[in-house]
């Protein structure tokens, strides 16, 4: 298969960057998207040019590193997969493919397609944890948790923090990510102790990082490789309103 790739090249954080077009030939339809970029990079290195910098790690669809905005979709045109799980058979021979980094003021571009997503880490640090006092581990079945709650918490916990929600949102809002992280703990008894402070601090950190607000377009959920539902955003709003009205944090 042959493609015309239009790829964002940017030397560094301070460079303004631009699209560069690369024709690529004889790509197997079973080649993954990242393998296709690997092949292109080999060709660039052979020509003595700078290879394209991009994030990747597990290539199994679970680490959330491979952040690429492909033809107007984070992680490309297919649903419920990350870029590493995208294969060239999803495209037509001769297609022109535009590849860009996530665009958000909170995710500054480091180089080419690589963005700095440590804003997400700081949101997690602000409250995405439970404190457990030391002592003997108690019996696993001591705390009864309804199956439906456990399932919902687990659905929220499947968020891999890739940032596709921010990339897809017209406001570059991080509410789907933050709400998934709030929800996975808010739904479980272990998360109740710090519930109010958690949602207040995580939302405050999210705002401080410069992410936009939610317009309830649903783009985040439509593009999420893990299919996180915007029900979580409603839950975060609920938790936030409840915390603001009743916490002792004045």
């Amino acid at each position: 298969m042959n493609f015309t790739l239009k790829i964002w090249r940017q030397k560094g954080a301070k460079d303004s960057g631009q699209f560069v077009t690369y024709p690529i030939k004889d790509i197997s339809s079973d080649s993954s998207f990242l393998e296709m970029i690997d092949i292109l990079n080999n060709q660039l290195v052979e020509k003595g040019e700078e290879p394209i910098a991009f994030d990747h790690d597990c290539r199994e669809g679970i680490c959330g590193m491979c952040s690429m905005y492909i033809n107007g979709h984070p992680h490309g045109p297919e649903n419920l997969i990350t870029t590493c799980q995208l294969h060239m058979r999803s495209f037509k021979d001769g297609d022109s493919i535009t590849i860009e980094p996530w665009r958000s003021s909170a995710f500054p571009v480091i180089k080419d397609l690589v963005v700095d997503r440590s804003a997400f880490d700081r949101i997690i640090q602000a409250g995405g944890y439970v404190s457990v006092n030391t002592g003997n581990a108690q019996d696993a079945n001591n705390i009864p948790i309804p199956k439906t709650d456990a399932d919902k918490a687990f659905d929220a916990a499947t968020c891999i923090g890739c940032g596709a929600c921010v990339a897809a949102c017209k406001n570059a809002s991080a509410m789907l990510f933050t709400s998934a992280k709030v929800s996975q703990l808010a739904l479980l008894p272990q998360g109740q102790v710090e519930a109010k402070a958690r949602v207040e601090n995580m939302v405050a950190q999210m705002d401080k990082e410069g992410f936009g607000a939610c317009t309830n377009t649903g783009a985040c959920s439509a593009e999420c490789p893990k299919g996180i539902s915007i029900e979580n955003i409603a839950r975060m709003n609920r938790e936030f309103i409840k915390a603001k009205l009743s916490s002792e944090n004045v």
């Binding site: 239009k6 964002w8 699209f19 905005y69 492909i70 033809n71 107007g72 979709h73 535009t98 590849i99 860009e100 665009r103 958000s104 003021s105 909170a106 897809a168 017209k170 406001n171 570059a172 809002s173 410069g210 992410f211 936009g212 377009t217 649903g218 783009a219 439509a222 593009e223």
Partner: peptide, 14 residues
């Protein structure tokens, strides 16, 4: 929150 817009458009279902 998004100072640089996408060159390839935004095609998410909304």
């Amino acid at each position: 929150a998004r100072p640089v817009s996408y060159g390839g458009g935004a095609n998410a279902k909304t």
